[in-house]
Nucleic acid binder design. Structure first.
Lengths: 195, 195
DNA sequence: GTCTATAAAAGGATAGAC
DNA sequence: GTCTATCCTTTTATAGAC
């Protein structure tokens, strides 16, 4: 395999387990069996290595979420909450059969990256993800017209939090179906009564 | 204020915003207006400083959760799901009026600490928290007897994830009540049908 | 308890040979 | 593309004066 890919694989594993600041370039090149200078040559800097790793994991998920929403809206003008939840969270569980070591790594990377406070991580994300998220927010708003926008926004943040739950053990795609049950019920709850 | 406390305050703020590995002892002592050597003198090491910070934030929450459960079980042998959720999540929102700068900091510290992959963070937590969590798990199990234990466990992890949702903007204790609504509905959902 | 000074190590980056 | 060698900065930790 080419060095570039081995660096990506090694970085993916280490960023997932130790976070951005907890991972040194030396650790990455050692694990990849490459030379210390390789990261500079192939990516330019540690921050750009992170961007490449994150792109590789997140872009397919984002695309699947967007396409899932398109497909859903093409089929019906009024998708249910459960359908929206499935389209949004499904891709975060797809291609990650339980037991597969690579899946565990990617899942953990999502957890770590989505929660990493390092500037290099926070700055990279945002624009890409936000576009998809906003489209879902709008769709949920229409499916839950009686819910005040502030509480809906809180629930969407709750959804994001739950999708990062560690899912190391569940067999099959149990976690995926559990997540849909959990989130569909949470989103469908009647609005909280005001003070 | 004594130096020790100022170091704790400064460290709390910086760990919350940049994580453990992203925070240097220099940054802490600068913000605290103390000397670089002060951390070594008062705490021994950076890792022990973190432990002191985490203890100060988490212990009161843990105690309140334990006492809340005791109170609940003293009143009724069969608490409802909503009552259990309130007892468990309430303390994570208490003493944190929105708008108060210190509250924002503590809330963010919880988010960062509960998700920080650094060994120094992960190793510190665990035993203390687990005892309380297990008691709640048992109580939820009794309140939801028809739910398979594996799915219940997944839902508990979902609860933990949601309690770390950033709650910077909501006014009053709206976030607290929204969280209870969200989580009570999620936990009360019927079991997911098996494959 | 607080300060200066410094030790000792780790980290990011790159120049230049091959 | 890959390697060695090295520079420069940042970091944790501590010894010893005050």
């Amino acid at each position: 395999m080419d060095t570039r890919t081995q660096l990506l694989d090694a970085a993916e594993e280490l960023f997932a387990e130790r976070g951005y600041n907890g991972t040194s370039i030396r650790a990455v090149t050692n694990l990849a069996g490459a030379n210390l200078a390789a990261v500079g040559y192939h990516f330019g800097s540690k921050a750009e290595l992170l961007a490449a790793v994150a792109r590789r994991v997140i872009e397919p998920i984002n695309n699947a979420q967007r396409e899932g929403l398109d497909r859903l809206l093409g089929r019906t003008a009024e998708p249910t909450v459960a359908e929206l939840v499935e389209a949004f969270t499904g891709p975060m569980f797809d291609g990650m059969p339980a037991g597969d070591e690579r899946s565990v790594r990617r899942s953990r990377l999502l957890v770590t990256i989505l929660g990493d406070p390092a500037d290099e991580v926070r700055n990279w994300m945002g624009p890409v993800e936000d576009a998809v998220r906003d489209r879902y927010l709008e769709a949920f708003r229409r499916a839950l017209p009686e819910l005040p926008i502030e509480e809906l926004w809180f629930r969407i943040k709750g959804v994001l939090a739950v999708t990062t739950v560690d899912r190391l053990e569940p067999q099959g795609d149990a976690a995926r179906r559990w997540a849909v049950t959990f989130l569909a019920a949470a989103l469908s709850a009647p609005p909280t009564a005001p003070d």
